[in-house]
Amino acid sequence: MTCSRRNFLAGAGAVIFTTGVAASNLVGGRKTLAATMEDGVKRYGMVHDETLCIGCTACTDACREVNNVPEGVSRLEIIRSEPQGEYPDVDYQFTRISCQHCDNAPCVHVCPTGAAFKDDETGIVAVDNFKCVGCGYCLAACPYQVRFFHPETKSADKCDFCRETNLKEGKQPACVESCPTKALTFGDLNDPNSEISQLITQKPVYRQKVELGTAPKMYKVPHGKGEIKG
């Protein structure tokens, strides 16, 4: 018997965290995912340099156009901070909100149909629209709250580093190609000679919510003003 949206949702229970899927334990006083995942052949990641970002949103526009993301939802957002400093020396911090492409992704662990998966070849966390039954488990499990239901496909959706668009054509992700200040760097974290690997060893970087054991592959160069909150 095949698992369709209808027959799955008709018999689905309300409990998300069951045997064999993600759970949280306290280990040494810190939260970590009980389940673990293997690294891919490649581990594509990204760096967002907040010192170079000017908040122009060219990246969000390019993402929407290349990946046919409809209005009302977004795979990528740039959030502007409150003003920092005093007039006339006022500055802003811009931070990227998008999928973190976790090496140990909670969304993958809780998905009952395998629709949410981590690509063994690239390490990219992606969604198979045909397998998604719209249960919403992955949306609830994501600590970064960056998944959404696509209003047209009715399946879960999010940033996939342009896996089905630009990457297939041998290009960089749309956001990277469109950034006028080169605030975004994309590449293979398994390659010590790649630009991204070199960058994260040369500059101070941080990742969000690493204490959860998600091992996110989205790195950020901090703006340098105020407190960084993971």
Results as ranks from 00 to 15, higher is better:
M1P: 09
C3N: 03
S4C: 06
N7P: 05
F8A: 10
F8R: 07
A10K: 13
A10T: 12
G11H: 01
A14E: 04
V15R: 09
T19H: 08
V21K: 15
A22T: 00
A23W: 01
S24E: 14
L26T: 06
V27G: 09
R30L: 04
L33H: 06
L33I: 01
L33W: 05
M37F: 10
G40R: 00
V41E: 14
R43D: 12
E50A: 06
I54T: 13
C56F: 03
D61E: 11
R64D: 01
E65L: 12
L76T: 08
L76S: 02
E77V: 00
I79A: 13
R80F: 12
E82R: 05
P83T: 08
Q84C: 10
Y87C: 00
P88R: 00
D89Y: 14
Q93F: 06
T95E: 15
S98G: 13
S98V: 14
C99P: 14
D103W: 15
D103I: 14
V108W: 01
V108M: 00
T113A: 13
D120K: 13
T122F: 08
I124Y: 02
F130N: 12
K131G: 11
K131M: 15
G134A: 11
Y137A: 10
L139N: 14
A140V: 09
A141N: 07
A141C: 07
A141Q: 00
P143C: 08
Q145A: 15
F149L: 10
H150Q: 03
P151K: 04
A156W: 01
K158D: 14
F161S: 11
C162A: 11
R163Q: 10
E164S: 09
N166Y: 03
L167P: 08
G170F: 08
K171I: 07
K171M: 04
V176E: 02
C179I: 05
P180C: 02
A183C: 13
G187L: 01
G187D: 00
S194L: 02
E195S: 07
I196L: 01
Q198Y: 06
I200R: 04
Q202E: 14
P204A: 11
P204G: 11
P204C: 07
V205M: 02
R207L: 03
K209F: 02
L212C: 03
L212T: 02
T214M: 06
A215L: 08
Y219E: 09
Y219A: 05
H223W: 00
G224T: 06
G230H: 13
